[in-house]
Amino acid sequence: MTRADAAVTLSAISRVYGRGNAAVRAVDNVTLEFARGAWTAVMGPSGSGKSTLLHCAAGLERVDSGRVLLGDTDLTAARDRELTALRRTRIGFVFQSFNLIGSMTAAQNVALPLRLAGHRPSAGLVRDTLAAVGLADRAKHRPRELSGGQQQRVAIARAMITKPDVLFADEPTGALDSSAAAVVLDLLRTMASGGQSIVMVSHDPVAASRADAVVFLRDGRVVDRVAGADALEIAGRLASLA
């Protein structure tokens, strides 16, 4: 895989929390490329450093050593202003807790990133983006009037409206029941097949089996990887780590 093919490149990154005896190497010298236009799942036991890795890759968390590239942009050297600009244009986030703004309607939440970037998104664009996640009729609803699965789809619409290079998702189905989760996974699959790069952390083998490739972490290190495996095989490999 050449540099141009990687949506995100991690070169020997480490992240240590605390110091001295209490130091935790949450991410330990990881070198990894997330392919462009592909959906990569990151798996591992609880506390293995998945979320930390995702945060570092997305420029939300500084690394103690190593380098993070988003395409050709060096995130480790980026200042806050540049990182902010990146979040508006090239990076999208979806999290387990949906993190919508409670006082805003679904449509307002979706339009927010563009408005923060100083644009006035057309009503049509917002409607289309909500329609793409199947919520065209819920534009005027506030988060508390939506189900968990619907809230997560609003969050995905909000992340997608900027047409980001990479969508980062941390346990996007973690708070959903299996049918709501299936809807969200279908949505991500459609996006990935359309060429969207996705990096997703999950502990659910069913979710990970929908991805193009799976990376396994343990104690902050990459210990295994697999492509095109089914849920059963992924579950087996995960079990062998614990």
Binding site: L60, D80, R81, T84, A85, R87, R88, F93, N99, I101, L112, P113, L116, A117, R158, T162
Partner: peptide, 12 residues
């Protein structure tokens, strides 16, 4: 709330 705004692209 402010962290959330920052997350979706609000500058300082």
């Amino acid at each position: 709330d402010f962290a959330l705004l920052r997350l979706v692209g609000a500058g300082r």
